[in-house]
């Protein structure tokens, strides 16, 4: 009798592991960073691009409504792809877009903007990449939709924006 119980429990346990591993296979082993709680606390001081002045990022999020924070760099190729979306969003006039210029050279950044247009309301610099880490970023490009009042991240977009994500932003800000 106890032999049967042993057998059954071992079989059940093996089956359990089997299904777990089977399901585990479906998950990508590349980390997909979906933050569960958006309560990312950030407030850091950074220098404006093209000026020597410094500002706390929370001061830029002072009006009602929402803001978009976009991390970009002139050396980042995918940033060029998503630039059109940002310009589009700007033309809607629904939210302010704050650019974080990631580990970039000011001259190149200037050229990048004059070439492709400037969607940003304000641009601050991040020469060492540490400001982006305060936001919980992994690299460039990354975009955050932020509620100005609560200073919480509503949505996080890793990598360049695409059609689907663009629609999503439009939907949220309307």
């Amino acid at each position: 009798m106890s032999k049967n119980i042993k057998l059954i429990s071992i079989v059940l346990f093996t089956l359990f592991s089997f299904f777990i591993l089977l399901k585990g296979l479906d998950k990508s082993n590349i980390y997909s960073p979906e933050i569960k709680e958006s309560k990312v606390n950030f407030n850091f001081k950074a220098k404006y691009l093209f000026s020597e002045e410094e500002v706390f990022i929370n001061e830029l999020l002072n009006n009602e409504g929402m803001s978009l924070i976009n991390i970009w760099a002139s050396w980042c190729l995918p940033c060029r792809d998503e630039h059109l979306y940002l310009l589009n969003l700007k033309s809607l006039n629904k939210l302010s877009i704050i650019g974080i210029n990631y580990k970039d050279d000011e001259k190149n950044a200037k050229q990048f903007l004059s070439e492709l247009g400037n969607p940003y309301t304000n641009i601050i610099t991040d020469p060492k990449g540490i400001n982006s880490i305060e936001l919980g970023a992994f690299g460039v490009p990354e975009t955050y939709l932020i509620d100005n009042k609560s200073k919480l991240i509503i949505q996080k977009f890793i990598g360049p924006l695409d059609d689907e994500e663009f629609e999503k932003i439009i939907k949220i800000i309307k």
């Binding site: 093996t14 089977l22 585990g24 296979l25 082993n29 590349i30």
Partner: peptide, 27 residues
């Protein structure tokens, strides 16, 4: 399935096969 510096092949269908085979043998 694992995040490792050494993982080169990455094809879930292969994984399913080895997994089933492995568990058939275990059973």
């Amino acid at each position: 399935i694992l995040n490792s510096i050494h993982t080169f092949a990455n094809d879930p269908s292969r994984g399913v096969f080895i997994l089933c085979f492995l568990f058939v043998l275990i059973f």
